[in-house]
Design a protein around this nucleic acid. Structure first.
Lengths: 201, 201
DNA sequence: ACCTTAAAGGAACCGTAGTTCCATTAGGGA
DNA sequence: TCCCTAATGGAACTACGGTTCCTTTAAGGT
């Protein structure tokens, strides 16, 4: 029963939107089933029966977030591509709604295994989406063979997430560009090949 | 009244230890005033009156964590120093108690401003402790003048924290060494100078 | 050793989120 | 169009964490 557009789908959308709102506005600690139902204009029995716990709602939200993919730009150079990626991540994390939302979702994942799995899935998807720009760079000869493409992508995001979560350091374009530049430099030097970790002495 | 060793101090220590235990074992979501009191063998009225909220307890815990400093090793080279740092962070984050504890504390900081401030303070302290090894490298001529020392230190930690929190990628010695190597390479290339972000094209 | 006072603790209270029960309703299929 | 079923929603119940009140205890100063 109940196809997309049906009542069930409408309820799910409303609840997930409400969940996103609460997470963005007040953080994970203030997420409650009853509050959620109130905001979504849905009986709290419904949200209870469908999800059961707040972390389950977050898990579902993450599944939806993973589904909607962001197309990536191709600039022709590794440096350009990674900078585009860094800028995209920066834009997301500094967005007044998305930034807090990501914080909250990560916080939720520290409290529940299923949510953590969903979060892993989300980032695995995102990283995999961008990895091709590194393999292309390998093909072009910009970086050594054997470079771990996903590792490079993670290296770009890492400094930005570190700032988001620890609150240490700025979260601006300089930082984003720096993260990209550092990843490129290291990748070119072969740090992200299997033997690269111990190389530069 | 009440000096170190007195009843007040004893209660505080017991509660903070209990808080650390709960956070490490069950995460931030399961932290409750009553449970805390039970574990610490303290009246729940006491913990309520002294702290009032769970985030306040976490904030206090962070203050204590910031106080106990870890001495850093000096190896004579930037690469050696940063690798030592990366290994230290790795050891902490993979420790069966400390790893989950750090996750939980970061999660708590996303829910409360005071806790976030305490977390910032904690990392500001830790980063400042290690920054000298970069400035020494500048003096030795290993890396360019104008290199942002704290930025370099953060660059080492970032990939490890990224893995801890997103669950993406391994958290092992290879990763740690890679983080250090990448930071060194980028620093040497001048990425962490004020103009460096846009340099490597 | 006492006395003062601030801190701790026990017990009862209160509010609310989570849970259950059952009546109602909306959708899809015949 | 009607019917059948599954999902929704309202209302009442329960459990439990947070809060308050008042008594008890112990640490420091004299």
């Amino acid at each position: 029963m109940e196809r997309p557009g049906g009542r069930t789908a409408r309820v799910r959308a409303a609840v997930l939107r409400a969940a996103g709102d609460v997470l963005a506005e007040q953080g994970f600690a203030h997420l409650e089933l009853s509050d959620l139902a109130r905001r979504a204009d849905v009986g709290k029995t419904t949200v209870y029966r469908r999800w059961g716990t707040v972390t389950a709602v977050v898990t579902d939200l993450l599944a939806e977030m993973a589904a909607e993919s962001v197309p990536r730009t191709e600039t022709g150079t590794l440096s350009g591509d990674l900078r585009a990626n860094a800028r995209l991540v920066l834009t997301t994390l500094t967005d007044p709604r998305q930034g807090p939302l990501f914080k909250a979702v990560i916080a939720a994942a520290t409290c529940d295994d299923a949510t953590a799995a969903a979060l892993r899935g989300f980032y695995a998807t995102r990283v995999a989406e961008w990895a091709p720009c590194v393999t292309q760079a390998v093909t072009r000869g910009e970086v050594p063979r054997g470079t771990d493409a996903e590792e490079v992508i993670r290296a770009v995001s890492a400094p930005l997430y570190y700032r988001l979560l620890t609150g240490t350091g700025d979260l601006d374009e300089t930082t984003a560009d720096r993260a990209a530049a550092a990843a490129v430099t290291a990748a070119v030097a072969g740090v992200f090949t299997s033997a690269g970790a111990t190389a530069s002495t």
